[in-house]
């Protein structure tokens, strides 16, 4: 459904030759070619739910924009359901729904239902067909309460639901979502996720989303594509990525006495399962891989040195983990 073959995107960035070039740097601007995306290829099948992740500035948005026909690749080709969105943008747009979490596509000053009316006409939907579709989306997204409110007065969660409904209105077979859960609270995220899951399962819509929220990936995606510094670094099932990264978790336990903590500390220095990171008074922090060991097993191992007063676990941030996977990543300038 979504095919990208050897996509490259080079931006020409103008930059003065020397920082202190004085008047000459005003007049003589040299341009630098910045490769934002380098040889990206993948093929996503019908009905797949793919997560597209990578740190900021890795080329995610650029790739998404090339896939949706907004940006022309410097070289390479995109096909959406067999149609090249750069040669036949309008045709490709019919089967494509896009949501930018950061930027609403709705008519800002008009009620949501007016946006639906305009969009319905743009995609040449019959009025009856549109009403039916809005009713369906209403069941899934509970839009009824704010269908008549101007979009500018909606809360972020409501707006995102509205935007999602707008992207789905014309029953696209491909859905591209750029950070659909950004800035939402837990319950709004849950709603959006359950909706996405059901349209993927029930309608067979092919979905690709970018996110910085690991839970989105875990709960939704059967496949993950990782992009860093403009190139693909991983493409496969989530489990594979996990085992590649090892998904380190930090476990912090507090003992009743200082003595117990010190004993445990000596133990973890030589333990194979948990790696001692820090000893602070009665609290020790260990790092372990949850791929290889279960949390409960680690706790039992630590409990052998005395009763625990408190235990906490923090999973490493996914973006952080991706960086761990590629330690030679240079810091990318904004």
């Amino acid at each position: 459904m979504i095919e990208a073959s050897h996509l490259y995107k080079t931006f020409r960035v103008r930059a003065p030759k020397q920082p202190n070039g004085g008047i000459r740097s005003f007049l003589r601007l040299d341009s630098i070619d910045k490769e934002a995306v380098r040889d990206v290829s993948f093929s996503i099948n019908k009905g797949e739910f793919t997560g597209f992740i990578g740190p900021n500035g890795a080329g995610k948005s650029t790739t998404i924009k090339m896939l949706s026909g907004i940006l022309h690749p410097t070289s390479g080709e995109v096909r959406l359901g067999g149609i090249n969105p750069h040669r036949k943008r309008k045709e490709a747009a019919r089967s494509l729904g896009v949501l930018f979490g950061q930027r609403s596509q709705l008519w800002w000053d008009l009620p949501l239902k007016d946006s639906f009316e305009v969009l319905g006409a743009m995609y040449r939907m019959e009025e009856r067909q549109r009403h039916k579709r809005v009713a369906e989306l209403n069941d899934l997204l509970h839009l009824g309460e704010f269908l008549d409110t101007p979009v500018r007065k909606l809360s972020l969660g409501q707006r995102m639901r509205g935007d999602l409904a707008a992207a789905l209105l014309h029953e696209p077979s491909i859905l591209i979502l750029d950070e659909p859960t950004i800035g939402l609270d837990a319950s709004a995220k849950r709603d959006i996720r359950s909706l996405l899951r059901s349209i993927n399962k029930e309608l067979g819509t092919t979905i690709m989303l970018t996110t910085h929220d690991m839970d989105d990936i875990e709960q939704l995606c059967s496949r993950v594509i990782v992009i860093t510094e403009g190139s693909l670094h991983y493409d496969g099932p989530l489990e594979g990525l996990r085992s590649k990264i090892g998904m380190p978790a930090l476990i912090e336990v507090t003992y009743r006495t200082l003595e117990q903590a010190e004993k445990a500390w000596t133990h973890v220095q030589s333990s194979s399962s948990a790696d001692g990171k820090q000893l602070q008074e009665r609290t020790i922090t260990v790092e372990c891989s949850l791929e290889q060991y279960r949390f409960m097993d680690i706790l039992r191992e630590l409990e052998a040195f005395g009763e625990l007063e408190d235990a906490r676990m923090r999973e490493a941030d996914f973006d952080e983990a991706v960086h761990l996977l590629y330690p030679d990543l240079k810091q990318i300038k904004a």
Partner: peptide, 13 residues
């Protein structure tokens, strides 16, 4: 602002 993106997504000129 990059708002042209949104216009490019529609099946219209």
């Amino acid at each position: 602002s990059g708002n042209l993106d949104g216009l490019l997504l529609r099946p219209l000129p």
